[in-house]
Design a protein around this nucleic acid. Structure first.
Length: 105
DNA sequence: GAGCTGACGGGGG
DNA sequence: CCCCCCGCCAGCT
């Protein structure tokens, strides 16, 4: 606890449905502007069964990750689309429309 | 107990 | 403008 991962999870948990954020944005929020990687690691370490909607975290291009495709490809995309998130023809999230705006700014 | 890997991003050459 | 390298934390072998 009190670890960087916990801080990341706490933020991700605040993301409302239909909204997404990027690894870099979370990194900045936890005080690690260059720690985008850590955010990704925090997601992989995300405990299953927790209330952390890790599927709402995408890379800077809005692209989904293959790490969700453990069972079937396009899992993350399907979850987001179910929440009303629009995707571009390139297969990326339309960040201009769905990027989460963190509190306190 | 130590080293490697793992869901990224930005800066420099 | 494109490609390579570095930074960072925690868990597993």
């Amino acid at each position: 606890m009190s670890g960087v991962f916990e801080q990341v999870w706490a933020l991700v948990r605040q993301i409302p449905p239909g909204r997404v954020t990027t690894y870099g944005q979370l990194a900045q929020l936890i005080g690690r502007p260059r720690g985008a990687r850590l955010v990704g690691y925090a997601m992989s370490a995300c405990p299953s069964g927790s209330s952390v909607p890790c599927h709402r975290v995408v890379n800077r291009f809005g692209g989904t990750t293959t790490a969700f495709d453990t069972l079937a490809p396009g899992t993350q995309r399907a979850l987001l689309e179910a929440e009303g998130v629009a995707f571009t023809p390139e297969g990326c999230v339309d960040l201009s429309r769905h990027l989460w705006q963190p509190p306190g700014r």
